[in-house]
């Protein structure tokens, strides 16, 4: 226990990198999820096909391979090297965006047909139907699975340790293990706590958002939806 202060301080140094990677990844994930999710619903076969290639390509390969490819192979092809943290964010975003696209597509498709028909009966334009009627309802449905997806993303930031990003896991493995070899239990105990707290913060934020979004629809957040999301976490399809 004597080394606890040093251990906390070294791991603490990694927190900013982990947080930046998570926030950056989440931001890119949101953009790609909605972009690709809507494109997957496009009436054009070509558009859907191209988007499918992106989604299946990233869902079908290993995240570690994607990371190594962008960090080690891409520079050979394009002639410049990405900063490790930046490369990490790009991979986290591309990978989780592919999963998120399916969440968005699924949620929009799950809005009952009657809602479309009602919107058509009111002579709303396709864009209005989506924006005014369909999307607000689908959005609430997306929040529980997105909560899981973001926690997956947080957990995935650990693999950035493999490309030298000094985030929490790398601090534990590369700085602490060689120096405080007898305190491994403590080192990983504190590491677990850090990730648990960060995951808790994500859940807290998403629950708040869920409450606001549900209230706007005059509903209460659905426990059932959250439970259902839990059973498909990580492989949301």
């Amino acid at each position: 226990m004597d080394n606890l202060p040093q251990i906390v301080s070294v791991l603490g140094d990694g927190i900013p990198e982990t947080v930046i990677a998570t926030l950056g990844g989440v931001l890119l994930t949101i953009v790609l999820s909605f972009g690709a999710g809507l494109l997957l619903l496009s009436p054009s076969r070509t558009v859907r096909g191209v988007t499918r290639v992106y989604v299946e390509g990233f869902r079908g390969t290993s995240e570690v391979v994607q990371l190594f490819w962008i960090y080690f192979v891409l520079p050979v092809l394009v002639g410049f090297q990405l900063l490790p943290l930046f490369a990490g964010i790009v991979v986290l975003g591309l990978n989780h965006g592919a999963y998120g696209a399916e969440i968005v597509r699924g949620a929009i498709r799950s809005v009952p047909r009657a809602q479309y028909e009602g919107a058509i009966a009111l002579s709303l334009s396709p864009a209005q139907r989506m924006r005014r009627v369909i999307f607000p309802q689908a959005f609430v449905e997306m929040l529980p699975p997105f909560n899981n997806l973001f926690i997956q993303l947080l957990k995935s930031t650990a693999i950035l340790a493999l490309i030298t990003v000094p985030e929490v896991t790398r601090q534990a493995r590369e700085v602490l293990i060689p120096n405080y070899g007898s305190d491994t239990l403590l080192i990983f105990g504190v590491t677990f706590v850090i990730y648990l707290v960060l995951a808790g913060l994500i859940t807290l934020g998403m629950r708040l958002l869920e409450r606001v979004a549900s209230a706007r629809l005059g509903r209460r957040p659905s426990r059932a939806a959250r439970q259902a999301a839990k059973a498909t976490a990580g492989v949301a399809s």
Binding site: I151, K155, A158, I159, T169, F188, T191, Y195, L196
Partner: peptide, 8 residues
């Protein structure tokens, strides 16, 4: 286990 990285 669900909330922390597999790598850790």
């Amino acid at each position: 286990v669900r909330s922390t990285p597999l790598l850790v």
